[in-house]
Design a protein around this nucleic acid. Structure first.
Length: 469
RNA sequence: CGGGAAGUAGCGCAGCUUGGUUAGCGCGCCUGGUUUGGGACCAGGAGGCCGCGGGUUCGAAUCCCGCCUUCCCGACCA
């Protein structure tokens, strides 16, 4: 029964474990160019589920999808000083095309504030055109010095929202809405990852933003992962791209813009937030396959029973895969465990004689026996339970590994294995440098009650510091 | 981009120090058979520009130089 583990244990070498999971669960491969990534069907199926859930929420928040070009004139980037300064080190620039050197180099988009700003300026005439709420699903390129599959690749897939508003308050409220109703809701309810919500300290802000909201998650090794961010851009980009509108009073007014994004990094977050030594562990609400039905024997009665069962599951709205492959039973089981499918239903002659199926939970290994007739209903119920349990387990892990500390020195110590929470007043420029020397960074700022401050200048703020991906 | 390690079959590795016949092993893969309720077994088989380029040499997986890629630790970042 105790089979030799097919993955490097987390406790032995976490980064190695991560790579093993990515490879053995058939999620992704490295591309031929450094830092590029081939997303394999199973990894892409998970990404499609993420897309679907986030896209639904974005649309509920009122934004519409559009598509802007991959190529951006280099001159656009330079129009916003901080923006170009922040992004120029990681730009890929096209200098030749059509067999000739280009008059103006073309940048491969690292993000689309600039092109979209240009078109917002064109499309917005009156206050009646506001707010303008856009989103696009696209690939972007940021030349990375230290790539890692899903977490940091030179090309990655993401969603970037861009909005324009008539007032500062409107823009701020919308960035906040996306932060809570799109990202945090998705992360908590679907990805089953508890988050710390807060604002970034000035040095961690998006290049060109006046404020950045972040969702920070804790991975199984105690490191932090920034899962999604929403930026208030103030009037910085509106000024650079002349995004004006005519007010009710007939005055020309500058817009306030926001942008917000989440990427294929979420797949990396999924792996590291829930995975164990047996492999990936996908929360039921996210899982492309929620239930795998395994035909224990390749016999007509078994196959027919499996097909009927799967039809019932699908009719019940359960995403289900039927595994009728040959080969040893143990091997098939292990393969599905590595892929993290939440529930495994085994159907064999012995079960059929008794009119039951054998069920195993991926998250805790618990084995159950269900009457064949009630599988679809039971599965639906149990999937909901697993979803809750995964969140609870992640929340407990996070809370146990998040400690209040009274000093920067202790914060650095705690951040070796988890998160440290301390007074933001204790962190001046030299203290932040001291932490950064130890690879510890300020992940976010919060109020004492955990709520989100409007600015880093509020009194009595706390900061959460950690090592991060 | 700096410091370290490494690239030999799909994956994991040995061989390299001390250059010398047909470059090995485990897993996986293919064929046939026996199996099948937790990574099965037997027999047979396929699969290698030994990362790429150059050099030394009668002869290079092995020695030298350059480059590329991967991993770890930093700086940069979703």
């Amino acid at each position: 029964m105790a089979s030799k583990s097919v993955l490097t244990p987390q406790s032995e070498d976490f980064p190695r474990w991560y790579q093993d999971v990515v490879a053995k669960a058939e999620m992704a491969d490295n591309g031929p160019v450094r830092g590029t990534m081939v997303i394999r069907p199973y990894g892409y199926a998970i990404w499609e589920r993420i897309q679907r859930e986030i896209d639904d929420r974005i649309k509920l928040a009122g934004a519409q999808n559009a598509y802007f070009p991959l190529f951006i004139p280099e001159s656009y980037l330079s129009r916003e000083a901080e923006h170009v300064e922040g992004f120029s080190p990681e730009l890929a620039v096209v200098t030749h095309a059509g067999g000739e050197e280009l008059a103006e180099p073309i940048v491969v988009r690292p993000t689309s504030e600039t092109v979209i700003g240009e078109f917002m300026a064109k499309w917005i005439q009156s206050y009646r055109d506001l707010p303008l709420l856009l989103n696009q699903w696209a690939n972007v390129v940021r030349w990375e010095l230290r790539p890692r599959l899903f977490l940091r690749s030179s090309e990655f897939l993401w969603q970037e929202g861009h909005t324009a508003h008539a007032s500062y308050e409107d823009a701020q409220a919308y960035a906040n809405k996306i932060h809570l109703e799109v990202y945090n809701d998705f992360l908590n309810e679907v990805l089953a990852v508890p988050t710390f919500l807060g604002i970034k300290p000035p040095r961690e802000r998006f290049a060109g933003a006046i404020n950045t909201l972040t969702c920070e998650g804790m991975m199984r090794d105690g490191k932090a992962l920034q899962l999604a961010t929403s930026h208030e851009l103030g009037q910085n980009f509106a000024r650079a791209f002349e995004i004006y509108y005519q007010s009710e009073e007939g005055q020309a007014e500058l817009c306030y813009t926001t942008s917000w994004g989440s990427s294929t990094r979420l797949v990396g977050g999924l792996i590291m937030a829930h995975g164990d030594d047996q492999g990936l562990l996908v929360p039921p609400r996210l899982a492309p396959t929620q239930v795998v039905v395994i035909a224990v024997r390749d016999e007509p009665e078994v196959n027919e029973a499996c097909e009927r069962l799967q039809a019932q599951l699908i009719a019940q709205g359960v995403r289900s895969t039927l595994d009728r492959s040959r080969g040893s039973f143990g091997r098939r089981v292990t393969d599905w465990e590595i892929k993290g499918v939440p529930l495994r239903v085994e159907v064999g002659p012995r079960d059929l004689n008794e009119g039951v199926v054998s069920v195993t939970r991926r998250d805790n290994g618990e084995k159950l026996t269900w009457p064949l007739a009630g599988v679809a209903q039971e599965a639906t119920k149990l999937l909901a339970t697993i979803q809750r349990d995964l969140y609870a387990r992640a929340l407990e892990w996070r809370d146990v590994n998040t400690l209040d500390v009274p000093s920067v020195v202790e914060a650095i110590d705690v951040a070796q294995t988890g998160f440290a929470k301390l007074s933001w007043d204790l962190v001046g420029a030299s203290e932040e440098a001291q932490m950064n020397n130890e690879a510890v960074t300020v992940r976010c700022l919060q109020r004492a009650d955990g709520s989100i401050p409007e600015s880093e200048l509020e009194n009595d703020l706390l900061c959460i510091v950690a090592k991060s991906y």
